[in-house]
Design a protein around this nucleic acid. Structure first.
Lengths: 213, 213
DNA sequence: GTCTATAGTCTGATAGAC
DNA sequence: GTCTATCAGACTATAGAC
């Protein structure tokens, strides 16, 4: 009677689930032969997590459930930089800061970026509803803000949606396609990458968005 | 004795292999539950191709062989636009044309773009050698050309490597993440996408690359 | 809560008739 | 060259001891 129908997770359960998520994130995005939902076995996740296969399935109902949980926990963090664009700041600086935050996130958390990319690339089977609901609303709001800035002459005229897409694409490129980036830049230039990319994007934003007098 | 050790493929063999490649490309990049090398079964490819599983394996030694062949046939076409940047043209127009060709390729052949993206995302197990060899040389050559244009004052100063990465990222975004783009733009704006993206990129290139007088 | 053992299913590849 | 039938291995998930 005192039991709730869905009791909250205990501390140990939360910890073990977090441990499994970390192992799964590693396994799903490691450069083995192939990644993605089907490319990874429970055995691999169990090996990385230091648990046995049935034990994993004690904490998660199925492999798909791990993958879903991982994505859900990811989305919120991933959209935070966009949320933080403020109507009260100086327009160009707000967007440059957004790009910088997004770039840092991509470089510091490439696994998360890759997992999200894999999900969208394969048709967003688990996040389609979130994309056309929550995410669309958020982007519409920020696009309207950018439009307002443009109307007030604080930014040069540009399509705000394609601007946002471009920022996503360019910043995530360094995480998702890091193998290609590294192959082309070579070891030397790769070391300087974070700084040089940062400068590049600052320049790009300034030239693209500074209104002509 | 008259037999060559590796006889060239007959016409029928070429046709059937092409048919299998088409079916595999469709299967590998279709929005089912998950894609990629492991996400697709020979049964699915056989179904799409209208052949039986053993018949597929008569034309290709293994599933991996189909995937490899697909990628090899793809790379050449995919790099053609970059190759076509000419030292003899007007610099800004050359780059704008490159972006336009790349965008058209992404929009017209999204499956090819997605297959390539999947390969790189998963660590480029089959194309790593090509990336750091042939592709690096090609990019180095074009980056040097852009540097020359900048030194001659025909383009505004910018890091040519990050410029090329950005062009790749932005154009391929419309193919690889089409689900997300469509979810955010809605049906109406999606219809106008090719034109609006084209205008956006022309503007972006002009503002980014036109030298200040 | 965690383990061993295993059920049951799917899948890549092969054998052999036609 | 193309088919049916089938094997051998790998995989997810479960049963049940401790």
């Amino acid at each position: 009677m005192d039991e709730t129908p869905k009791p909250p997770l205990t501390r140990i359960q939360r910890e073990n689930r977090a441990r499994i998520r970390e192992a799964a994130l590693e396994a799903f995005t490691r450069h083995d032969l192939c990644g993605g939902l089907r490319g990874v076995t429970l055995d691999k996740i169990a090996l990385v997590a230091g648990l046995t296969k049935p034990n994993i399935l004690y904490y998660y109902a199925s492999k798909d459930a791990i993958y879903s949980d991982l994505l859900e926990n990811l989305l919120e963090e991933w959209l935070l930089p966009l949320k933080e664009i403020s109507p009260d700041g100086e327009p160009l600086a707000e967007i440059q800061n957004y790009v910088r935050r997004k770039l840092r996130l991509s470089i510091e958390k490439p696994r998360e970026s890759k997992l999200f990319a894999t999900e969208i690339l394969h048709g967003a089977p688990l996040t389609a509803a979130t994309l056309s609901g929550y995410l669309k609303d958020l982007v519409d709001e920020k696009a309207a803000l950018i439009e307002r800035w443009i109307k007030q002459g604080q930014l040069a005229p540009i399509d705000p949606y394609h601007l946002i897409f471009s920022i996503w694409a360019m910043t995530q490129h360094y995480a998702d396609f890091d193998v290609q980036v590294r192959a082309i830049l070579g070891a030397e230039k790769t070391k300087r990458l974070p700084d040089e990319a940062s400068v590049f994007f600052d320049t790009l934003c300034a030239r693209l968005l500074t209104p002509s007098k």
